[in-house]
Nucleic acid binder design. Structure first.
Lengths: 261, 261
DNA sequence: CGACCCCTTGATTAGCCTCAACAACCGTGG
DNA sequence: CCACGGTTGTTGAGGCTAATCAAGGGGTCG
């Protein structure tokens, strides 16, 4: 799939007026019960809702980025391109994910983010976030908790890639994806659409597409998963989790957060 | 080096009274000019200063952790132990580092943290942080920026381990350590003490100690670094950076933060 | 002085990569 | 309708990187 290099200004987008703020509210509302004041503060943030086609680069490594994006619909990949032509996918982004955290620490994006499917994204400028911190400290603290949770997921992936076999890496990636898909599609999901090519799975696990293919087939042969087209079905989830040495980081503690205003 | 399993309650520590709050203030003061109000808010947080001997486990994977630690002196490693007996070091922690971020998202530590040298650590309970968010929103936002910066560093390491050669991984780790040592020891540091065994470097880079040894010697042979004992000297820094494909994440943007109170 | 790390070096093995070829599938255009 | 190019998945053969296994040396600490 060729990646189109459309600059941000060319993105297909539509302002949704009052609706536009609800993206972040919807996301944060997953973790805490928002007060009216908090909801109002979020809705007051300036932002856009954008429809983006598959294969679009929404952040480019080295280019300025000053905003967070919240994924409402669709899948994306965050990654780094290496000088030798390779690529490392650092995260597969699903609906509900916040992407572009690095805008809060750097002026230029350290990662490239590309849509894997058609997506609906909401943007929040980082300067708007500052007023959120000032007015609704609980939401600021929640953002930190979410960022920390992602940090833990990255550490898990690091251990997976650094210290486990090819088969275990693929298993761990599948576990990660399933666990996060369930957050939006329900906890009993066992069959799911995975819009990743085997090459992309390889780029996420530090393997080649050829070897990913062999690992997936071995998982199928051993009755751990089934696969037809881009759909994966879990047949023996316990074994998949055990082989991937997977731990879910889905549940984020919020009891230490300051009281809402 | 055997790791002593002293529980937290047995740590050698001393309360330092008025001094105790200055650890976090000192850390955050690196990135922003603290106002008197901010400094007072930090000093008001309950916390300890602890002296910990080399080889002590300060967080254990799976055990409760509700506090951040700020490193005042010494080196530590954060890592994960694998069921197959291996280990992945996810971060080498240096003076000025904040460790235990995950206490802000989880009740149980996802990583094990062990001191590599004798250390001086300051602790801040996560419940104390909530009042900091409420009273000094700028500092809350700064914490988020620092967490995001660490996330980017982890993504860099992921790309290094997933997609580069053994030699490049070792080079990248050295670059990372040098860049961060310079934050506390001055930007012109070219010779530094690195209290890591080659096995630990291996655990950080996803390699074996044997192969790390060969890579380090090859870097020495090629005139890129020098080494005597635990001291490393940079001879050709540009090449080290190029080979490791290293990008510094040391500079954290703070201009989007809300105004101080 | 002995025990224990840690570093070093060589020989062998294995896991994954590379290269190559082909099949299946898709959207496109004739 | 089919032909076509492009992408993705599949499979085999061979090679290379890094792991494994093994042995010895130097340093340090009790």
């Amino acid at each position: 799939m060729p990646i189109s290099l459309l600059p941000v200004s060319v993105w297909v987008y539509r302002g949704l007026g009052a609706l536009s703020g609800s993206c972040l509210a919807e996301r944060l509302g997953h973790n805490v019960q928002l007060t009216d004041g908090e909801r109002a503060a979020i809705d007051a943030l300036e932002n856009d809702v954008r429809q983006v086609r598959r294969g679009t680069m929404v952040f480019a490594e080295g280019e300025p980025s000053r905003e967070l994006l919240i994924v409402r619909k669709g899948w994306l990949q965050s990654g780094v391109f290496m000088p030798n032509g390779g690529r490392q996918i650092t995260r597969v982004n699903l609906p509900g994910d916040i992407i572009g955290w690095s805008a809060l620490a750097f002026d230029e994006a350290p990662e490239t983010v590309v849509t894997l499917t058609d997506c609906t994204l909401c943007s929040v400028d980082r300067t708007c976030l500052s007023s959120l911190f000032a007015q609704q400290p609980r939401l600021g603290a929640l953002l930190l908790a979410l960022a920390v949770s992602e940090r833990a997921e990255l550490a898990d992936r690091l251990a997976s890639i650094g210290r486990t076999s090819a088969r275990a890496r693929v298993a761990a990636l599948l576990c990660d994806i399933v666990a996060r898909v369930r957050l939006s599609q329900g906890p009993d999901t066992v069959t799911l659409h995975v819009p990743l090519t085997q090459e992309e799975i390889g780029d996420a696990t530090g393997l080649t597409a050829v070897h990913v293919n062999r690992m997936i087939r071995s998982l199928v042969e051993d009755g751990i998963i089934d696969r037809s087209g881009n759909f994966i079905t879990l047949k023996d989830e316990a074994r998949l989790i055990a082989e991937g040495n997977f731990t879910s980081r889905a549940e984020v503690r919020t009891d230490w957060l300051p009281a809402p205003r």
